[in-house]
Amino acid sequence: MRHGYRKLTIGDIAERAGVGKGTVYLHWRAKHELFEALLMRESIALVDELLDELRADPAVIAPHRIFPRAFELTARRPLVAALITGDTDLLGKLASDSNLRSYKLLANDRGYQVLVRNGLLRGDLPSVQYALQAVITGFYFYDSLDPVTGARLDQGTKSQLLAHTIQQAFECAEPGRLEPAAAEFIALMEELADNYRKSIYSSDPGTG
């Protein structure tokens, strides 16, 4: 967070970790592989936290709850937020890495299909996924466009505004099937998190 991807070296990382550079290279062949693993680890931590909440209360799957909650959790993890917003100052070339930027769990096609199929998102819009994702993306980006207004609102207020917008514009009028949707969504996110874990260690020579 202090130096960003471009300025930080493997030597810096090894020194902070109290090991030699060779030890770092035993696990990651290049700096970008280490950073990819770090970003995936942060994404997994966010997913795990969201999964715990879904398991405890399936009603969290309602769009006006799950998307604002993900927004709040992301705000606590600046590396994940930087990945979502494509922050080149912090992430350098990793900000445009197609593999990493594909890890937007809640924007995943299959996730939206779960919500529409279970009557939680309107299926009558030409592309509810596009429209909803455009709104959510605006909440992530708007502070950079208008930092003065953004500074006046705390994270909780922003999340409430996002929840209200989603509920009014995108949710179905009739109650949907919360528990089946939550079960499907949990299975999907567990699968994706497992894929992240495999990706983290697939390039680790020490695990061969």
Rank of each mutant, 00 (worst) to 15 (best):
A169C: 04
P63G: 07
Y201D: 15
A37L: 01
R16T: 14
M1G: 13
I61V: 15
A14F: 03
F185N: 01
Y25L: 04
S102Y: 04
A30D: 08
E174A: 06
Q113R: 05
L90V: 11
Q133D: 12
Q129W: 05
K93Q: 12
I200H: 00
G111V: 13
E33L: 12
R152G: 11
D89T: 09
S127V: 08
L153F: 12
R77M: 09
R55V: 10
R55N: 13
G208C: 14
A134T: 06
A181F: 04
I136K: 01
L26Q: 05
S43M: 15
Q113A: 14
E72P: 06
L161I: 09
G206F: 00
A70K: 00
E49P: 04
L120S: 11
P180K: 02
I44N: 05
L38K: 00
L46W: 09
F170Y: 11
Y130F: 09
F71P: 04
I136L: 05
A169M: 03
N195S: 15
F141S: 02
R2V: 11
T207H: 01
E42H: 15
A75G: 15
V128Q: 06
G138F: 03
L178V: 05
A56Q: 10
D89G: 04
D87Y: 08
A81E: 12
K93D: 11
E36D: 12
D204V: 02
P126E: 08
S43V: 13
E171D: 07
V128A: 03
L90G: 05
L38H: 10
F71T: 01
A193M: 09
N99L: 15
A14K: 02
T88S: 15
